[in-house]
């Protein structure tokens, strides 16, 4: 088949809402877009282990400690599935991790904020995992098969995380006055960064249009942001906590909540590398990677010796 025929077949598959599989022909740009998006997503899962992991050794009850450990472990698992999905596109996990460590690939800017109190663990579960689900549910229907399937597994666990975060904040909000204040403070700090997790407004988003045509993305940033706000406002009421946006108001005509404008300069600053924790998060990841190098080398050396003895014996 010539190039044009392959291209037509690819387009037909996309338009029929079929899945593109690794062995199928795909345009280079489609492949590149997916590698960028999937690896950025994988890196986000991995870097995202740090802010909550920061509280594992200080969790205030054994029940919460077990939940938190399991959650952070789930995020490592998400990273694993996603690196595997990226590998179906002809890249390797090791090179992606090197790109992350070199600052050449990004991860979600939300993880560049610090977790200052225990309530931040709840705020991340409720808001950040909540925003992640909003983003990821449409991705379960993404045109690239391995990515879509990874998202199905990931979404199940994320909704679990979201409920656990909600429940943690609920306990604090109904607890002592100090606990309530801790929960409110965490929501005050995490709300706007979470709303910005959907990326810049539609007019400024660089990749949206092409991604929508390829059915990698199904909804625009602003549509997803609205969906998140609509889902979250009633939950905040149930929690007895206030969202730090005085413009939030139900709009009868639109059938949606109105809300205020994000500080897009702040988002740009954090994405550019000047958030409170960009340097710390990356340095932590680089350090763990470098400290583990001798272990990975030892495992590889042992496997080589073993393979050599096995083939000598055969």
């Amino acid at each position: 088949m010539d190039g044009a025929a392959l291209e037509r077949e690819f387009k037909a598959l996309i338009e029929a809402d079929s899945r593109i599989e690794p062995r199928d022909w795909m345009p280079d740009e489609y492949r590149k877009t997916l590698v960028r998006q999937i690896s950025q997503h994988a890196h986000s899962e991995i870097i995202g282990m740090q802010p909550e992991g920061n509280w594992i050794t200080r969790a205030p009850s054994l029940r919460r400690k077990a939940i938190l450990m399991a959650k952070v472990q789930d995020e490592a698992g998400h990273g694993l599935y996603l690196y595997c999905a990226a590998e179906t596109l002809g890249v390797e996990r090791a090179e992606l991790i090197d790109l992350l460590n070199a600052g050449k690939q990004k991860y979600s800017s939300i993880f560049n904020y610090p977790t200052l109190t225990w309530a931040d663990v709840g705020a991340i579960g409720w808001l950040v995992d909540g925003a992640a689900i909003t983003n990821q549910i449409p991705l379960t229907r993404c045109s690239y098969g391995p990515y879509a399937r990874a998202m199905v597994r990931v979404c199940k666990e994320e909704s679990f995380h979201q409920r656990q975060g909600f429940e943690l904040l609920y306990a604090l909000s109904r607890g002592t006055p100090e606990q309530h204040a801790m929960a409110q403070d965490a929501v005050d700090r995490w709300w706007w960064p979470s709303v910005m997790m959907f990326g810049p407004p539609d007019g400024e988003s660089v990749h949206t249009e092409q991604s929508m045509a390829w059915r990698i993305k199904r909804f625009s940033n602003d549509e997803l942001r609205q969906r998140f706000v609509d889902m979250t406002v009633p939950q905040a009421e149930m929690l007895g906590l206030t969202l730090p946006d005085p413009q939030i108001r139900w709009n009868e005509d639109r059938g949606h909540y109105d809300f205020g404008e994000c500080d897009w300069d702040e988002l740009r600053r954090v994405i550019a590398g000047d958030g409170p924790c960009n340097r710390q998060r990356l340095a932590h990841h680089v350090q763990a990677h470098e400290e583990g190098a001798w272990v990975r080398e030892a495992a590889a050396a042992h496997a080589r010796k073993h393979a050599a003895t096995a083939s000598a014996a055969a």
Binding site: Q50, T57, A76, L80, R296
Partner: peptide, 17 residues
């Protein structure tokens, strides 16, 4: 649990946890 996000590979991070 102190190893979380510090293990030599992702697989080991999961295994130690």
């Amino acid at each position: 649990a102190e190893w979380s996000s510090r293990a030599p590979t992702l697989e080991e991070d999961v295994a130690l946890t």
